[in-house]
Design a binder for these strands. Structure first.
Lengths: 246, 246
DNA sequence: CGCTGGATTGACTCGGATCAAGTCGAGTGG
DNA sequence: CCACTCGACTTGATCCGAGTCAATCCAGCG
């Protein structure tokens, strides 16, 4: 089977040495993706979890709605990202998963996933590593919410998303398909304030957002504003920002 | 081997059906715990991760220090909790782990842990489930930081810690061995404000803290203030608060 | 061509931070 | 046994970052 290498394969290859048998097995499991429209829920809080979701194209997010009606986004899922391994063990989802753009999502049944991990130890290693990194990202998110002010918070998220999508795109400009409203829900701010902060970052020449793209005009400045340390992303070879850093 | 059942065993038993061979294997790996003094770091950011840590007695936390010097706690570890499975795969810790009280910690070497998971599938299931729940707790923490005000945030944390330590203690009162300063670092607030909030919660008759113990005087009120929904803890049989809830 | 959802900007408010004292309790040593 | 110290707790006064409320602008689209 000669499958086009997808973002998922690409990501796992960055996490462990995979041979062609490994990548073929992965490709086979992700060959029949399903489409989700922008703003469509992939799975909802309370639902019984089934297959493992793998985002092949587009952006998605995890979120919760509070009694008050306000929403908090706890994670962005980029192409190549996958949702919780072993979710099937839980009785009910404790949060929602939603497509932020048109998404291509592979659904891997729990037993097929188990078999994959069993038969391909290198894939298992990559998946476990990926899970560890995801946890690190959650922890970094908590740090941002707790101890960074709004400019720092916005800048930090941009740094993270830039590095996470670096493998896909070229330099300094990445796809950034999220509205200020979504950004506000992710950062625990109001859309109004997000708007002001973006303006500020634009005025100091750090970044600009144009037609769904994020252009980092001054990487070093952005990193400094954010107080960004990429160690929590556990990338093997640090290229992007680190080149700019001392 | 007739080992005293410890909190770790107890916790895993709540997550999966374990036979005596399973529990014996676990006990064997946790029989030589090491002591850590209060405020002592167990492992530091940047360190190469080694064994898996299991908290047998006492409280610990994960935290990060920002360039500004302020600290954010991202997780509390209670007796029975264990740190990341497979950490050994990462090159460096991205956060610190610290004892909050005198702690007894078991150190399980990576290969012994691998063998345990391999030979005892039920234990593996319990561990994976535990990891999923820990992630849910991180996500709930993000929601608190992003969208709850300080009273709600304090109340929510109390609800969570109460339920998490419920298995150990009896009703309405739990050990709560953390200072207001630590609480502030966990909730992204200042110690001064934490103090005021605690006073407020005391005055409305929801909770009191006395000599390192948390007494929940009005569980229903606390739950209402927090907007607490315990679903993210994925407990099999819901007893505690839910009895009070409609 | 009007409708709609996002982006933008201004005026005003308020929750929580900051600054500054002062209190309390557990050691600790003379 | 008491004075001293040190850390945590408590309280008040003031300040500021971000929320709230309310218009307006703008682009895409049916």
């Amino acid at each position: 089977m000669v499958a086009m290498s997808n973002h998922f394969v690409q990501k796992l290859k960055n996490l462990a040495e995979l041979d062609s048998a490994d990548t073929d097995a992965i490709s086979a499991l992700t060959s029949r993706p399903r489409d989700y429209a922008s703003k469509q829920d992939v799975i909802r809080e309370g639902d019984r979890p089934g297959p493992v979701f793998v985002i092949l194209k587009g952006w998605a997010c995890r979120y919760k709605i509070l009694p008050s009606g306000s929403r908090q986004i706890m994670a962005f899922l980029l192409p190549g990202d996958c949702c919780d391994l072993h979710v099937g063990m839980l009785a009910a989802m404790d949060h929602n998963l939603q497509a932020l753009t048109l998404c291509e999502v592979a659904l891997i049944p729990g037993d097929r996933m188990e078999a994959l991990l069993e038969d391909h130890p290198a894939v298992a290693r990559a998946m476990y590593k990926s899970q560890l990194i995801d946890e690190g990202i959650l922890r970094a998110w908590i740090v941002s919410m707790g101890r960074r002010n709004s400019v720092e918070r916005v800048a930090h998220l941009m740094c993270e998303l830039y590095l996470r999508s670096f493998s896909i795109n070229s330099l300094n400009e990445i796809a950034f398909p999220i509205s200020q409203i979504v950004l506000a829900d992710a950062l625990g701010m109001t859309p109004v304030h997000v708007n002001r902060i973006l303006k500020e970052l634009r005025l100091v020449g750090a970044v600009t957002i144009h037609r769904g793209n994020l252009l980092i005009t001054d990487p070093l400045k952005l990193v400094q504003i954010a107080g960004f340390d990429e160690n929590y992303l556990h990338r093997r070879k640090a290229v992007a920002f680190s080149r700019e850093l001392v």
